[in-house]
């Protein structure tokens, strides 16, 4: 999934980019309203995140322009000024959500996931609706997994990683393979990033993260899903 981020403050822009990339999105980040409109046309993102106070064209105007060509692409406003995020105006313009600065990483990620979930639900269902890893049922379109009556929130990247394990049961998957699945072909993060992600994912999906059963470590190579691990 591709996300367009328009934010004039460079640190904020970089931070948002990092969160979204961490969630597994492909991010296009721009610094002003005109560039946002241009990027929207050239990249056709699945989701747009707009600051309101921006040079050249403000977030409201960018929202209007985008809504003229697409009535469905999810749009989220970001602002430090509560006056600017006029909830009524936001709704009239067709925004899906707004986030007040300052915000927490988890809060932001949760909001993005919520919007993404709605987008996935309305998108053509070429993905499998669910797959099972041991006692865990993964719901890709929900960005969630279920164990009994317990729900686990997952990021897009985590869903992709779990899907890769599911599609290659019993195979030792090396880092390149997992990178390609989780980060796409272009990105090449260092191996520590992958390890961190697997560690976080284990905390979410394993009953006991210290002795993992779904995602097992293959020393010197990578990781493996053992379907008969029970």
């Amino acid at each position: 999934m591709k996300v367009l981020v328009a934010e004039d403050d460079p640190h904020m822009r970089r931070g948002i980019e990092e969160i979204l990339e961490g969630e597994g999105y492909q991010v296009v980040a721009v610094a002003d309203g005109e560039a946002a409109v241009e990027a929207y046309r050239s990249h056709a993102p699945d989701f747009v995140c707009l600051d309101i106070m921006m040079p050249k064209l403000n977030g409201y105007d960018v929202c209007r322009v985008i809504r003229r060509s697409s009535a469905t692409v999810p749009i989220m406003f970001l602002s430090a000024k509560s006056e600017e995020v006029d909830k009524v105006l936001g709704l009239e313009l067709g925004a899906d959500d707004y986030v007040m600065k300052p915000f927490g990483v988890k809060e932001f990620a949760a909001r993005v996931r919520a919007i993404c979930r709605r987008a996935l639900r309305t998108a053509p269902a070429h993905e499998v609706s669910q797959f099972i890893l041991h006692d865990l049922t993964v719901l890709p379109a929900e960005l969630r997994a279920r164990r009994g009556d317990q729900l686990v929130e997952l990021s897009l990247r985590e869903v992709r990683l779990l899907r890769c394990f599911f599609e290659h049961p019993g195979q030792a998957l090396d880092r390149d393979r997992l990178f390609a699945a989780g980060w796409g072909h272009k990105a090449y993060p260092n191996s520590r990033t992958l390890d961190q992600h697997i560690s976080k994912l284990r905390k979410k999906v394993e009953l006991d993260p210290t002795s993992p059963r779904i995602i097992q470590t293959v020393h010197g190579l990578g990781y493996r899903y053992e379907p008969t691990g029970l």
Binding site: D9, H11, M12, G15, I16, E18, I19, G22, A80, K81, K101, P102, F103, G104, V105, K106, Q196, S199
Partner: peptide
């Protein structure tokens, strides 16, 4: 107060990102 919010937003955001990096 509004001007304070932008740096504050960055402080919080980066503190949380840093938190995610720490193992």
């Amino acid at each position: 107060s509004h001007e304070l919010k932008t740096p504050l937003a960055n402080i919080r955001l980066y503190a949380e990102l840093l938190d995610a990096d720490l193992e």
